[in-house]
Design a protein around this nucleic acid. Structure first.
Lengths: 182, 182
DNA sequence: TCAGTTCCTGACCGATCGGTCAGCTACGTT
DNA sequence: AACGTAGCTGACCGATCGGTCAGGAACTGA
């Protein structure tokens, strides 16, 4: 069984993703979780605390897993391992990635968003001496993958099996990043 | 000299892009344009009308220019023409593209957003019999390009000359879309 | 049984925001 | 000069939302 706190956190994640942080109301999150608005604010002191709780796990996991695998990606096989892990992380934390990609610009003053931006920048800076094409490739790959995952739950028409999408995404990002590996 | 109406429209475009539609206040748009809040509402009946005015020109131009060039793109040279036009449209309407890509999900009930989504879907459907990789390639290219353009004004660090970015983007999207042409 | 604690709630408050309105100013027309 | 109209504004209103608070229910331990 889920605790109320974790149910509220999941409801907040879904609501923030579908309505945006500003568009999401605490009442709507409470309704989705099946509790009262005051109960939401009992478990999480504020709306911003709720966003922290919703995004935190994803940021933590990405920050701890990705850099290691990326640093180790020297051979083509290791690069494929990195790509698979990257895509799986993106799929596993699809909602969090969607929130971050689509709203980090407008929420740039929130500490949790700054933390996520710092993490991405640190990972990117780990790979020096890159030309403009490499930078563009990385940005297109990151933004494109997140955009695709953000769209698929809506446009059910072109939403195939999850694993098919995953494999294709690994393939396409591989084509994109092969010359430089992110 | 600019009319007040067009100055307000431009201010709204910038404010919607930087703060988001929900985060943008009519007062902030008025301040940016150097007029009063009541004056904004004199020229545009509502906040939603203002969004229509801000996004409309971009949607109109893309809808009238893109399909023709895309339909004609049979040879590699014609494909390059299409890519250049696509990237230039994206750059010229960078703010509108940024608003649409990052907020079309949370604003899916607004008529202007529905219109833009229909336009993109219609362009995409013009090219039948595509496999999963082609679909993923197109989505990554579209979302990635928009994400890159949305980021660059902020992270001035990696913002080179505009034309350098443009040429690189044409190159990278060319690599991505070459097998299928969007 | 009783006290303490956790979990939860309805009612309420202050602030903000979209939108309205009466009225002011400036200018063109007759 | 008199009038109409376009452009613009400050003041105001109703609604919504984030957050507070006093208190009730259920459980635990002594």
């Amino acid at each position: 069984m889920q605790t109320t706190a974790s149910e509220v956190r999941q409801a907040a994640l879904e609501e923030f993703a579908s309505s945006g942080y500003l568009g999401a109301t605490i009442q709507a999150i409470a309704d989705r979780a099946g509790v009262s608005k005051a109960s939401v604010l009992y478990h999480y002191a504020s709306k911003e605390t709720l966003l922290d709780a919703a995004l935190g796990p994803a940021i933590d996991e990405i920050a701890t897993l990705l850099p290691g695998t990326l640093a180790r990606a020297r051979t083509p096989e290791e690069q494929r391992v990195f790509l698979v892990e990257f895509v799986d992380l993106l799929i596993r934390h699809r909602l969090a990635a969607q929130i971050f990609i689509t709203q980090s610009g407008t929420l740039a003053d929130l500490p949790i968003v700054v933390r996520a931006q710092d993490m991405i920048r640190r990972i990117a800076e780990d790979r020096p001496e890159r030309d403009i094409d490499d930078i563009v490739r990385s940005a297109v790959a990151l933004g494109g993958a997140a955009y695709l995952l953000a769209q698929t739950p809506r446009t059910g028409a072109l939403a195939p099996d999850e694993s098919v999408l995953r494999d294709s995404l690994v393939r396409i990002l591989g084509e994109l990043l092969a010359p430089a590996v992110v």
